[in-house]
Design a binder for these strands. Structure first.
Length: 836
RNA sequence: GCCCCGGUAGCCCAAUCGGCAGAGGCAACGGUCUCAAACACCGUCCAGUGUGGGUUCGAGUCCCACCCGGGGCACCA
């Protein structure tokens, strides 16, 4: 190898090995709570410890790190913590397979991932590291649960729940996707169980209202998803009088969004699995009803929602009185009405609701049009004939009460709704009402590897909270086969653990054997980071005030209605408890896309997985990071097959070579240097800041590439390597590159004669005078066609530009013999002459 | 069925306000270097912006309809 070759060889792995220990020693990213500098909190969704890091981790942390490192360069005190969401099923399943404790798998993987993160050179503050499965952490998860319970926000109820037969545990609504378990894909069934819930529905309206603060700062997509999930609807409660077989009367309230169609209600439907249905069914219909209810209970959501499935139901043999016209209508039970939405009972208006119409057709029930909705030809179709319910606006018909009250003649939905609600309220037969699709958050799980619910069940005292001073309620030492799912929590089998003295009366009592959904753990970890060692509370309110709300939260969009909704809910409750002084935890959010390969999600079965470890071995950390950041806008999915880590490496090499070519001495005054290059440098540094702040990292990288090209050109065929502008440019490249490629940047920095670390070198000062262009190209168009380009001053006046343009020879030629109708001048860039 | 996001060169992507469609990269091709190759370097090629209308002096950008791709919601009364 010649001397030149040796000098020019850039060994990425040697560079990585060289700088890691140096940074370890410098510990440059430890956030100082007491720093006088302005604080920034850079948060990234913490990791689940299954195996080693993969491409997805590499992408999200690379993007996130650009922001965190940028803030350091800009002089902020940055908190960029890291932790692990370390409770959960995969560890438990692995433990059963391998006959070991879930902690073994969990903490081994955490160590592996931590080591990978270090090598990946993220600017994490390792001193704040936390794991949700540590007793020091889940102690406070339990403490928070008890505070929620004291406020009536954690309660137990018996109700039909989503059950995953594979994982042998209940699931929250949010964890059921298309009728399947979000985690394992098994078809979810229903079970009637007593379970713990968080009363998130109490916060439905605030979860909606506070989104105003997030508008423009969170991805619109996430806000829309949350809005849909909360599902606010406006309508009315209407009371129907039920005439039971016994002669008894009973008031049943229905919820409807179309109270204006009340006169068209020709029957009523109660959810088959609602208690109400069983209570009111006539004796001669009971047998048929019980059989139907059994059938409904066995049905999974997938069966129930199967497209094209005919409506089913059973006549309950009772009637109900319509409150506005006194009409007696039959009452049915059916599965298309849901027990846990609204009141579990509806008034059916088949003419104006497709589901009701389908049901009416199936069972030969009456259809009455009360809104004459014009069709495309201007006529009015009869839903009974067309089988299409009409839901639009129209004029009201058949809508009058005996006492003269009527909707007939109205043609406006809003007015009709207003009128009928007014009438119902006056009669005490109903009222305007708001409903939400959101259900309470089912938080108990029948699995082992989670935070035990800190409640004791005592025969005499009932449900008793474990006193705070006895927290944490630690998990018993179970492993292997002990953890096999049996339909009840494995904790139930740990007799020594389950049997305790009641904290209240001292008598025999049993611990609650369920554990908490791991989304409870992750609903407050971002607060814990602010004071991770605190042992007399979940977090230090003063430190939280210092750092929160997080200035950026980077993570996957898959948590739009899970983690993000739960964390917002927790924050609002903590606000109401006086523990935090804000209601939204994450000021700005960035969702990264997914890394796919060859057009498809990476998967073992497709054999298209790309190993992060292999890529790092082949191209090094910097090239992989650069590739991911440069691939496209951060929120877009990126296809690894479209990318070129080899190209990234080539670029890094080119940048690195610049540092070796610089011969101007360190500290040289750049002002006498090459003005052209200086302008490029200052323009690039200036623009890069805006691009990072706008999360347009791919464009920022492109601009750095331009600067590298310009510097190369200056060295080879311009001002030469000794010009101080070349040093200035190379130093700027090093600092800009430090956001994406920390090893290369550090190596450049050293070659340029500086001490480590470039990560704290500071953002280069921009000289505004160098941002001003001497001249710009003005385009002169005639009828939209470019006829001339003129070099003009950027501050030229519209009048001057027009006269220069009109005086141009080529323009004159184009205008020859034509009538100038109008001249549009946009100084200094454009003149358009319109002829006519 | 409803709601969001996207469609620019062979590919990934740029294009503050509506103002010359191209910043950057990949691939390809040509050249320099080399005994040769790889690497590196220099250079070249390439689209009128999914389709059809509209507004405008001027549309990738705004409006309407449609097509394609991706995502979400969906028996929620």
């Amino acid at each position: 190898m010649s001397e030149r070759d040796e000098q020019e060889h850039y060994d990425v792995h040697a560079v990585e090995a060289k700088w890691l220990p140096v940074w370890e020693k410098l510990d440059p990213f430890r956030a100082d709570d007491a720093s006088p500098r302005e604080k920034r909190y850079a948060l990234t969704m913490f990791t689940y410890p299954s195996g080693d890091l993969h491409m997805g981790h590499a992408e999200v942390t690379a993007l996130h790190d650009v922001i965190a490192r940028y803030w350091w360069q800009r002089g902020y005190e940055v908190m960029n913590p890291i932790g692990w969401d370390s409770f959960g099923l995969p560890a438990e399943n692995a433990a059963i397979r391998n006959d070991e404790h879930p902690a073994t798998y969990t903490y081994a993987n955490i160590e592996t991932q931590a080591e990978s993160f270090r090598r990946y050179a993220c600017s994490f503050d390792w001193s704040r590291r936390l794991h949700t499965s540590d007793p020091e952490y889940y102690r406070w998860t339990q403490w928070l649960f008890l505070r929620f319970r004291e406020r009536g926000l954690a309660y137990r109820k018996n109700s039909p729940v989503n059950w995953c037969p594979n994982d042998q545990t209940v699931l929250a609504n949010e964890q059921v996707v298309d009728g399947r378990c979000e985690r394992c894909g098994a078809e979810v069934t229903r079970r009637e169980l007593t379970q713990w819930y968080f009363k998130i529905t109490d916060y439905a309206q605030r979860l909606l209202d506070d989104m105003a603060q997030l508008e423009g700062r969170w991805p619109e997509r996430v806000l829309t998803l949350q809005r849909n999930w909360i599902g606010r609807s406006e309508g009315a409660h209407v009371d129907f009088e039920l005439h039971l077989a016994s002669g008894e009367r009973r008031t049943v309230t229905v919820y409807t969004t179309r109270p204006d169609t009340l006169y068209g209600a020709t029957f009523m439907v109660i959810a088959a699995d609602a208690d109400l249905a069983a209570e009111v069914v006539a004796p001669e219909r009971r047998e048929a009803f019980e059989a139907y209810r059994e059938q409904v209970r066995k049905e999974s959501d997938i069966d129930r929602l199967a497209t094209g499935k005919a409506k089913t139901g059973v006549d309950l043999g009772v009637t109900a009185t319509n409150p506005v016209n006194g009409e007696r209508v039959p009452v049915w039970a059916a599965d298309y009405v849901l027990a846990d939405y609204g009141t579990g009972a509806i008034m059916a208006v088949p003419a104006h609701d497709q589901r009701d119409l389908d049901f009416a057709r199936e069972f030969g029930l009456a259809v009455r049009t009360v809104v004459a909705v014009p069709n495309a030809e201007g006529g009015v179709d009869d839903p009974e004939q067309t089988y299409v319910a009409t839901t639009g606006d129209g004029s009201y018909v058949n809508s009058a009460s005996g006492d003269g009250f009527r909707l007939d003649g109205l043609s406006d939905k809003a007015t009709a709704i207003h009128r009928i609600v007014e009438r119902l309220e006056a009669d005490g037969k109903g009222a305007g009402a708001v409903n939400y699709r959101l259900r309470d958050w089912l938080l108990s799980r029948q699995r082992f590897w989670g935070a035990p619910i800190p409640v004791v069940h005592c025969e005499t005292c009932g449900e008793v909270a474990v006193p705070d001073e006895q927290l944490p309620v630690e998990l018993p030492d179970l492993k292997g086969a002990d953890l096999k799912p049996k339909g009840v929590s494995p904790l139930a089998a740990a007799e020594d653990w389950v049997n305790v003295a009641c904290p209240k009366c001292g008598g025999a009592a049993l611990r609650d054997t369920d554990t908490m959904d791991t989304f409870v753990d992750s609903s407050w970890y971002f607060l814990r980071y602010c004071s991770p060692g605190k042992d007399d509370g979940p977090f230090d309110p003063d430190q939280v005030r210092t750092w929160m709300p997080a200035d950026i939260y980077v993570g996957g969009v898959e948590h739009a209605v899970l983690h993000l909704l739960y964390a917002r809910f927790f924050t609002k409750v903590l606000h109401d408890m006086g523990m935090v002084d804000f209601v939204e935890p994450f000021a700005v959010q960035l969702n990264q896309g997914v890394v796919i390969n060859q057009g498809k999600k990476m998967s073992k079965s497709l054999g298209n997985g790309v190993s992060l470890g292999d890529q790092l071995a082949a191209y090094g950390v910097d090239a992989v990071r650069l590739t991911l950041v440069f691939a496209g806008p951060p929120e877009d999915n990126i296809d690894w097959a479209d990318l070129s880590p080899a190209g990234s490496l080539r670029f890094l090499h080119r940048a690195w070579r610049l540092a070796g070519d610089v011969t101007a001495p360190i500290g040289a005054d750049p002002s006498p240097g090459d003005a052209m290059l200086r302008k490029v440098t200052h323009r690039t540094v200036h623009d890069a800041a805006g691009l990072v702040e706008g999360h347009r990292f791919n464009v920022m990288v492109a601009r750095v590439m331009e600067l590298v090209n310009a510097t190369r050109k200056a060295i080879d065929s311009g001002c030469g390597p000794a010009d101080p502008a070349v040093r200035e440019a190379a130093e700027a490249v090093a600092v800009l590159l430090s956001l994406v490629a920390p090893y290369t940047a550090e190596e450049m920095w050293e070659r340029l004669g500086h001490e480590p670390t470039v990560a704290k070198a500071g953002w280069p000062a921009v000289d505004d005078a160098l941002l001003v262009e001497d001249s710009v190209t003005a385009v002169v168009q005639v009828q939209g066609k470019v006829r001339a380009r003129l070099d003009v001053s950027p501050t030229i006046s519209e009048a001057d530009l027009e006269s220069v343009a009109m005086g141009d020879e080529a323009v004159q030629r184009a205008l020859a013999g034509k009538q100038v109708r109008k001249v549009v001048v946009r100084a200094p860039r454009l003149v358009n002459v319109v002829v006519g």
